[in-house]
Amino acid sequence: MKTIVEVKNLVKKFPIGDGFFTALKGVNLIFTEGEFTGLVGPSGSGKTTLLNIIGTLDVPTDGDVIVLSKSVGNLSPKEAAQLRKEELGFIFQNYNLLPVYTVFENVEFPLLLLKMSAGERKQRVLETLEWVGLTDKVKSRPSQLSGGECQRVAIARAMVKRPRLVLADEPTANLDAANSHHILQTMEKLNRELKTTFIFATHDEKVIGYLHRIIRLADGKVVEDSSPLNSPKGDLKSESSQGTITNNNDLDSSPSGRLGGAL
């Protein structure tokens, strides 16, 4: 499997008063193409910081993160923006749709930055909205949609440019169980069919149930990197800062509660 992201001895410190808060303490990880992986841990464990650095929105204090063969620490702001524009997709807890634009326009926005022709944009947007089952909401505004529909628009916006890596920060935190499962099934199908790599930051048990790989973080360190037994990916590479790899069989990763026929 092709390596998508390589995290090498990553340290991230934030200044607080006269000192520093160390959010990540020597993290080592490798993510390969097509993974459906979750960074799991309590608040303050460093999962969002790690996601931000992988997403080139922040830079390491020490160590390095290689995203699609590019060292995040060495990227200029312009190069980082270019990488995000072409290769990365983001999904957020609060959907963050632009309220004054329609569903179509929200999904179209990333393609405008890629300077795609109007015809190609339209085709891509409609195709992506079909994946997430929102072709009947093309002209709706976000205020006219349910939370689940909004998150599906956000997924469509992240996927419309066919990114190689999607970073999702607590994507189901604001959704009820039914919508959460629906969203996760959508993402899992996109992962399966498009081979897009998904990395989640989450502490939602519903999400954890879908993950093919679970990386547990605590106090800025990887404390567990496991592949659930029923995961289709049994060959995941992992390295923890402590050098220990633990399988967590306690997690309820059974798909028994999933909703069928989302797509």
């Binding site: 997403g55 923006a81 995000r84 524009k85 072409e86």
Partner: peptide, 16 residues
């Protein structure tokens, strides 16, 4: 700021 954050995430630079 939320919109700006989103636009940065999508791939616009601060300058843009």
């Amino acid at each position: 700021y939320g919109e700006f954050g989103l636009r940065l995430a999508i791939g616009e630079s601060k300058h843009e």
